[in-house]
């Protein structure tokens, strides 16, 4: 029992379960899943489907955060990616052709990869603080997206493109399979090769890992490229869902929700150890909370209040747990004023 309690995923999993149980008690149809025309329907399926863009962005964010970084530009990258994809489809002669959509999606994701590489260049080569380096693209990216769409909301009517977000395969939504594929790819590369360990070592102590022969520049650069690519894919899903490229609304605030998902999943913003499973659970917590708030009849504009409460509860709980040992010794107040040197360095680095 004690071992379960101490597991790093204990609190995230418990929160998710509590949310699901509360929802089920409030409205039993929450866990109902119905089969209709070879497709599964239900609130839980909706959560799986709607969480796809956030899932992709949060996965990339996890890797970036593990290197002691942060990527604020993901929302803007989503906007650019959506704008690129829709503009290609719109301008082509055959918006309904699978080939057109395929090219559009590939180009959009490649553009996002380049944007991610740009962030990575600023952070790993020019050594600019991540929060500021990515702020540049966060500010400029939406402007670029607006230029691509010519300041309009481009809409398309393309069957194969809409399929990405609203289609079904084997009873389940396509978007969910994209999530699963991304999770599997990231987990395999990071956990089945040494890359994950190297990423963590760069995050825990960049200087020591450099001395130990870890090529930290390439690892950090790569992390931002992964984040950009995944954000690009998320932008395609978002655009496909609303069948339009909205440069202002696409991915608005998603960087904040993604960071929240990563933190909820137990990955520290100080970098180092990261948990992909934790992030996945964090995303589901956020999506379930969103669905709960919607069900309560709260206007979605007011939902940030709930997220604020969740953030405060989570961070305070984490900090108390961290200091549990100190509290037992006593003197909690005096020690509070003297955090360890290590913490401080991290704060400065941010």
């Amino acid at each position: 029992m004690n071992r379960i309690y101490k597991h790093r995923l204990f609190w995230p999993v418990l929160s998710l379960l509590v949310l699901i149980v509360v929802n089920t008690i409030a409205r039993p149809q929450f866990i109902e899943i119905t089969l209709q025309d070879g497709r599964l329907y239900g609130a839980l399926i909706d959560i799986l489907r709607n969480s796809a863009p956030l899932m992709l962005v949060a996965l990339g964010m996890t890797i970036v955060i593990a290197t002691r970084g942060i990527d604020l530009s993901v929302g803007a990258v989503m906007a650019v990616s959506g704008a690129v994809a829709l503009t290609i489809i719109d301008r082509s002669g055959s918006p309904g052709a699978v080939g057109t959509v395929f090219v559009a999606v590939i180009v959009a994701i490649l553009v996002s990869l380049v944007l991610g590489a740009w962030n990575g260049f600023l952070v790993s080569v020019l050594k600019i603080q991540p929060i500021i380096a990515t702020l540049v693209l966060m500010l400029a990216g939406r402007g670029v997206a607006l230029l691509i769409t010519g300041g309009f909301i481009t809409t398309v009517n393309s069957e194969p493109f809409a399929f990405i977000a609203s289609g079904y395969v084997l009873l389940l939504p396509v978007a969910f399979f994209i999530s699963i594929a991304a999770i599997a790819a990231v987990a395999l590369v990071e956990r089945r090769t040494a890359l994950g360990v190297l990423t963590e070592s760069v995050g825990i102590n960049p200087e020591a890992s450099r001395l130990a022969g870890v090529r930290s520049r390439g690892i950090i650069w790569g992390a931002y490229m992964v984040s950009g690519t995944l954000a690009g894919a998320a932008g395609v899903i978002y655009a496909s869902n609303i069948k339009a490229a909205d440069a202002n609304a696409a991915g608005l605030f998603i960087e904040l929700y993604a960071i929240l998902a990563v933190v909820l999943g137990g990955t520290s913003l100080a970098g180092g150890k990261f948990s992909i499973a934790g992030t996945v659970i964090g995303v589901f917590i956020i999506q379930t909370l969103e669905s709960t708030i919607l069900f309560l009849g709260v206007p979605s504009a007011q939902s940030p209040v709930f997220f604020a409460v969740v953030v405060v509860v989570v961070v305070v709980a984490q900090s108390q747990r961290m200091r549990g040992a100190i509290a037992r010794v006593g003197d909690a107040f005096r020690k509070q004023d003297a955090p360890e040197r290590d913490d401080e360095k991290v704060e400065v680095a941010r």
């Binding site: 206007p299 007011q302 940030p304 209040v305 409460v309 953030v311 961070v315």
Partner: peptide, 27 residues
């Protein structure tokens, strides 16, 4: 208080403030 007494990073603490204030504005 979150930053100083709970050792929360300023980024996250003020993010909570952002959500709180934006939500309250709509309330």
């Amino acid at each position: 208080v979150l930053v100083q007494y709970f050792n929360v990073q300023p980024f996250i603490a003020s993010l909570a403030g952002l959500f709180l204030a934006r939500g309250l504005a709509f309330v």
